[in-house]
Design a protein around this nucleic acid. Structure first.
Lengths: 330, 330
DNA sequence: TTGAAAGCGCTAACAG
DNA sequence: CTGTTAGCGCTTTCAA
């Protein structure tokens, strides 16, 4: 902030640029003119250092090549842009170690607040508690940790899974497989309970071998699924709790010449735009990803605007919708 | 950097933490122990201010809910994480005004370097030139501006479009539609030339009304496409230069009861994982999105490591691959 | 309404 | 090998 010394003090310039009420209109005008002319843009790091905030939020997610998270980022970015916040993105690729390192870095004050969707491996919570203890507000979205007291933006996982399972039952399924990647994630277990309770409520016994947990190692997973699909008594319904698994199912069925929905009906949690053009069109539970991202960012930014950064210990639930297509059909 | 004063000067601590060679091993050990104990993390903004760099790169893209860009971010992030860089993401949503504002902000020194894929509206180049003039290195990926002298990471758009068109011709197509969103984007015009030259080389006259430019206003676009598909002489081949348009084509064909590939064969530029499960499976030109992101970040980070940030004026081309599926078939 | 001075937390340059 | 000093560019008192 040098060249401007032509006329005024740095303090005045600083205030004028931020449109402080204690500066006269004439000087503001003069300053703005010079700012324009010299193409001056204040150094955000000097400002951050002094003000102890960065106008930046950190977003930590497992993947970005997943339509749910991509749409969520979109939502987050839309409110960040509107409110003048910058968005730092970090991908954990489901590694708990990475998650820990990233949150540790946040203790530096790099970000004013954090939006987190945990990895499939995350069971400990100390790294998160530590960060929050240091005064960095953190909200969860989608993949939350219930033990931690903060705001959580989620969808109605239990109800959706219940609904999906009921739908399969209504369409005549007797033996329904439940596919997931993790039994750790709270979101998975909610979906699992929804599945189980729907079965029980309709007088179907829950069979543990129908609940399949994959490793996310494509080849192994593929083989495992094929084995399950072949072994009698044959399943006639599948609820995939993850989009990626629906694709695996389609692949395996094509391979084994199992007809969807003739032999087996399929429904999946998914946000794929192209779900309706799959062969056959996939019945989905589609999550309001954009809205979840938006709500998460809004809550965080709002908290950041207050003196005491307080994130209520509450769950904000934005419901998913079931979209029935041809992969399920009596 | 306070509590440590128990024993040493701030300068020593600073050097020890950064593992400077001019500090003895014993003190490093002592310092690290205390760092551990007090959970100390250096303030990045103070460091940025002093060192005049931020270890941060800015990524500016039109959308994130697009499998190409999502994969590209993935590639960018992978090298950033490896090299200790942070990634700020900005979405333009195809708005030139936003692009300008974002790059203007970068003049503040917020980022050490920029990776840019321009909007469909971008025709001016002054905002980019200005940023570069200020010493901020910028590399393009995918949607590049040829007029600007810097490194550009692209795929072989011309050749791919040529190949795709040739493929349709070989499969018997006589009247091939070319669908795109913009005639401004260099990448689009390259694809268009590939298409045109393939036609010419095979003795087919280029028909201007077969080249359709959409507005990205879903309803209008959909109607326009349907009109084109119905109007005789009927097209028997389609090359969609954008993934999203392939989905529109599938929709319109389903609606009009036009059979793919029986009535019309379809090929599209696309990175959809689910392309093979569409009905029918979509023949694609699939771009090496992850690699493009990775290469772009690598080039930028490498330049950032040098005294004089120099980005060669060169094009790095990573070829796309045609994956033939059932949407094209003689 | 403006300005002088102090200092955010770090690091580079230079002494010792 | 360790310490001293002087800022990086901004914002915040507080005084004028």
């Amino acid at each position: 902030m040098l060249a401007k010394e032509l006329q005024l003090s740095v303090a005045t310039i600083s205030k004028a640029i931020r449109d402080s009420h204690e500066i006269s209109d004439k000087t503001k005008l003069r300053v703005n003119a010079l700012v324009e002319k010299l193409n001056y843009v204040p150094n955000p790091y000097a400002s951050s250092l002094r003000r102890r905030n960065s106008k930046t939020i950190g977003v930590v997610i497992p993947e970005v090549t997943d339509s749910f998270f991509a749409q969520a980022i979109n939502g987050i970015e839309s409110v960040a842009q509107e409110k003048g916040y910058h968005v730092l993105i970090y991908l954990t690729h489901e590694s708990f170690e990475k998650e820990k390192m990233i949150l540790k870095d946040f203790e530096s004050g790099r970000v004013d607040g954090v939006l987190l969707s945990v990895t499939r491996e995350t069971t400990q919570i100390s790294h998160i508690e530590e960060l929050m203890r240091m005064g960095v507000p953190l909200a969860f979205f989608d993949r939350v940790l219930e033990e931690i007291e903060t705001t959580k933006i989620i969808t109605n996982d239990y109800e959706s899974a219940y609904l999906a399972t009921k739908h399969l039952i209504k369409k005549g399924c007797k033996k329904i497989l439940f596919l997931s990647f993790s039994n750790i994630l709270c979101i998975s277990s909610k979906r699992l309970s929804g599945y189980k309770n729907a079965l029980l409520d309709h007088g179907i016994k829950v069979n543990d071998s129908d609940i399949i947990t994959f490793s996310n190692e494509s080849k192994t997973d593929y083989l495992l699924l094929k084995k399950k699909l072949k072994s009698p008594p044959r399943a006639d319904g599948i609820l995939a709790s993850v989009e990626k698994l629906a694709i695996t199912v389609y692949q395996a069925c094509a391979d084994l010449r199992i007809n969807i929905p003739g032999d087996v009906q399929v429904i999946s949690f998914s946000n794929l735009d192209s779900a309706s053009f799959l062969n056959p069109p996939l019945t989905t539970i589609s999550q309001p990803a954009f809205e979840i991202g938006k709500a998460a960012a809004a809550v965080l930014v709002k908290a950041l605007g207050r003196k005491k950064f307080e994130l209520q210990n509450e769950e904000i639930t934005i419901p998913s919708a079931m979209v029935v297509r041809k992969s399920t059909r009596g």
